[in-house]
Each structure stands twice: as structure tokens, then as C-alpha cells.
Amino acid sequence: MTSSPSRRIAVLVSGSGTNLQALIDAQNTPALPNAQIVLVFSNRKAAFGLTRAAQAQPPIPTGYLALQPYLKAHPGYTRDDYDAEVARRVLEARPDLIVLAGWMHVFAEGFLDLANAASVPVINLHPALPGTFDGTNAIERAYEAFEKGEIAHSGAMVHRVVKDVDRGEPLVVREVPLTKGETLEEFAKRLHAVEWEIIVQAAKQVLDEAVPIPP
């Protein structure tokens, strides 16, 4: 039994938070040992991920800041100022790892510079394979490409976050085949199940590098 303090995770979400739920369920289990989610942060007030955090046992602290209200309240400020403010609020939780789990906002230097200065790794879940379908609507675009006969499989990955969208170093990559006659909804359901596995796997991998558990 180790007496080391929990490794601290901040999770950023924009939507329903199913990937967050996978992390909540895995914390302090063999899949994600000595790990505690210390903050769930969203750019959307109605994100159900915030509700998941509040309903967790014990409840997880939450934070919220949306881009347009922030810019309206701060005339002359830029998107980069917003990114930096999000970074400051997230870093106040003293995370050892920041996980973007369905976070639908592209960070630039304002966020990444502060995270890097604090030596806090940032990883992102993306529902496509490296170098394919970067950006939004990746699942729909992959399905459309399959229907046109352009691809036979897609997949999901967790990668380190860099300025270029979905171009950071892949950490965990999993292929997901597409099946003739399958609906988009059926394919998406199978792919999401893979996402829930690899986001936990990647979080453990990066935490083990950044904050190893003493023997």
C-alpha cells in the first residue's frame, strides 16, 4: 500500500461528459491508480459534464467560462486573453495533468504557454486516427468517406496538445473498422466505447511519466 498523495487531474469538457464519466469511474482503480479529478471545467454553462461532476461521489469542483461573455465583459481583450484566463483558473487547481475530453474550443499560445510553464502536460481525445479528419465532425466525415469507398476503418486517439489542431504526439491510438450497412449512429456508438477506454489508458500513461507512484 502506497501513502503517496493522489495524482491530480483537471478535465475540460463542452458537452455531455461521457468521456469524463469514464475517467470518474476509473479514478483510484487499477486502471487509473492514485488519481483524483480535482476540477471539471467547461466553456458551456449547460454542459452535462458539469452535472456529472457535481453528482460524483464525492462531488468534483467545477468551473465555467465562455468565450463570448468573457470578451463582452472585457472590451479590447482577445481570444488569446480568454485562453490564458482559462489556463489560470485550471492551474489554480494544481493539476498534474489536464485532459481535454470533448472540449470544443481550440487553444492557442495563451493556454499552452501557461500550462507548459507550469510543467503540466495537456492531452486531448480525438475521434480519428493521426493525420486524418482533424478538427470537428471527425466521426461524420469518416463515415462519409467510408460510404464513398475511400477508407475501410477509422479510429480514435489521445494525443499531446500543441498549437496545430489534433497534430500533437499520439499517445494511444486504436483503429475502429467500419461495417457495410451500419448506420452512423451505430458506428459512433462503437467508436465512443473505444474512446472511453483509451482516455483512461492515456491519462494513466502520462501520469505515470509525470508523477510516478513510488514503489
Rank of each mutant, 00 (worst) to 15 (best):
V40G: 01
Y143Q: 05
P130Y: 05
F111C: 02
G110T: 13
F41Q: 11
L39D: 10
N124A: 03
A26Y: 01
D80I: 05
N137L: 14
P127L: 08
A66Y: 10
N43R: 12
G49Q: 00
R79N: 12
E109Q: 11
I139A: 09
A128V: 12
Y64E: 15
Q57I: 02
L67Y: 06
F107D: 03
L114N: 07
A118Y: 12
S154M: 06
G155V: 10
T18K: 08
D25F: 00
N124Y: 05
P95E: 13
S16Q: 15
Y82G: 00
Q36I: 03
V120D: 03
G155M: 03
S16F: 15
N43T: 11
H126K: 08
W103K: 07
G149E: 09
R141P: 07
F133G: 02
D113E: 13
V38E: 00
F133W: 05
G135N: 12
A115H: 13
E85W: 08
A22S: 10
V38P: 03
R79A: 13
I9N: 10
R44I: 07
P61Q: 07
I37T: 00
T62G: 04
Y70M: 02
D113S: 09
M104R: 11
H105I: 06
L20V: 06
S119N: 14
V120Y: 05
Q57Y: 05
D113I: 05
E144P: 03
L23Y: 11
